[in-house]
Design a protein around this nucleic acid. Structure first.
Lengths: 195, 195
DNA sequence: AGAGAAACTTGACAGTGTTAACTTAACAGT
DNA sequence: ACTGTTAAGTTAACACTGTCAAGTTTCTCT
């Protein structure tokens, strides 16, 4: 096979992402992936320790992408409540528009895959911190999220994750209006300004 | 191999459940399962159309078990708010104490498995209806959950599911007190009686 | 040009879900 | 007691899977 000029690792990762998005998790085998990228299955092992490591690389990408979207959403000036709303919407939007990314990131857990290395969770924690900050500010203690804010951030996170994962799995009653469902969910943790 | 006296289907299902609980999803292959039950892999196909069908049978069990727990929790007399709390706790308890059941039921979605047949969702819908009823009653319109109640029930459901699935995946910050986390989450949708 | 390192392939191992074809056991009717 | 039929299991195979040790090719540097 012709020695490829460009970085093979890069091409493998690209193809993996593409296959994952277009044909789903099941279609992603080492041999098939190798085939569509133009090398042998074992070559992949030169760049990734194993199949899980490949997925981890995709998780990296996914976390980066989500991070980016949350940074954007978090930049909106104005009330903390609005920022919180924007953050929530950004998360939901990311999840629903990138189902395959979302799947590798949050739905393929340790039972099926080697644990995603803890030291790489920094960005993931940062993502959570955005929520904590908006919550802190909203509660009138800007700049320094307390333990309580972080707790609340986790709750918000869990709710959003629950909604996305149920929707992606097709487990929410189809007769339900999806937008209404998500709005109601978001309102649940965005308390109206106390009268 | 000695012809077994008792129903093989029954024994397969039993062993499958046990293996799933004790060794996890990965360890459950047709050959291994057959081995530990004392038959050949192909014999399983006499009782289950394929591996997915076997999982579906386990989902059935799981839904039944959850149903049972919710019925119990829903029977508690007293205020609707308390019943709602009990229902939520029962759900969380079920999820955290039966991780493997929970996994087959909610975490192995269509991407990895043939869709769970829609007609079997009756009991699953009933489970959701419990929440809708408690919510309706709490909102002062007993006996007949409205569209809004059902919407709210889905929101509650999503939040609970999000919490359980994050916890099971080990994705909630370990420094967080789990009980506090869950309590905070539950309080989110159980509004305090308006003053 | 020749040595050494880097990039990639061959061929195999042990496992997977699944199927078609075969064998064995149990039971009914003559 | 001897059939014919049906049910219950098994054998052997197919086409896959992830992964690894060993071998080959290509590039780079002296």
């Amino acid at each position: 096979m012709a020695r490829s000029s460009t970085n093979l690792r890069y091409r493998i990762l690209n193809q993996a992402r593409q296959t994952l998005v277009s044909e789903g998790y099941r279609a992603l085998s080492m041999r098939r992936l190798a085939n569509s990228v133009g090398c042998t299955a074992t070559s992949i092992y030169l760049y990734f320790q194993n199949k899980d490591a490949l997925f981890h690389a995709l998780i990296d990408e996914g976390i980066g992408l989500l991070h980016q979207k949350l940074v954007q959403a978090g930049q909106s000036a104005g009330q903390a409540k609005d920022r919180l709303q924007d953050l929530a919407e950004a998360f939901l939007d990311f999840g629903l528009k990138n189902p395959e990314y979302y799947e590798v990131m949050f739905l393929l857990h340790p039972e099926h895959m080697e644990r995603y290395p803890a030291e790489k969770y920094r960005k993931a924690r940062e993502n959570l911190e955005f929520f904590a900050q908006a919550l802190a500010e909203d509660a009138g203690r800007p700049q320094n999220p307390t333990k309580e804010d972080r707790l609340q951030a986790n709750v918000v996170w869990a709710s959003l994750h629950g909604a996305v994962s149920l929707l992606l799995a097709g487990r929410v009653d189809v007769r339900l209006d999806q937008k209404l469902f998500l709005n109601t969910l978001v309102k649940q943790f965005i308390q109206p300004t106390s009268p």
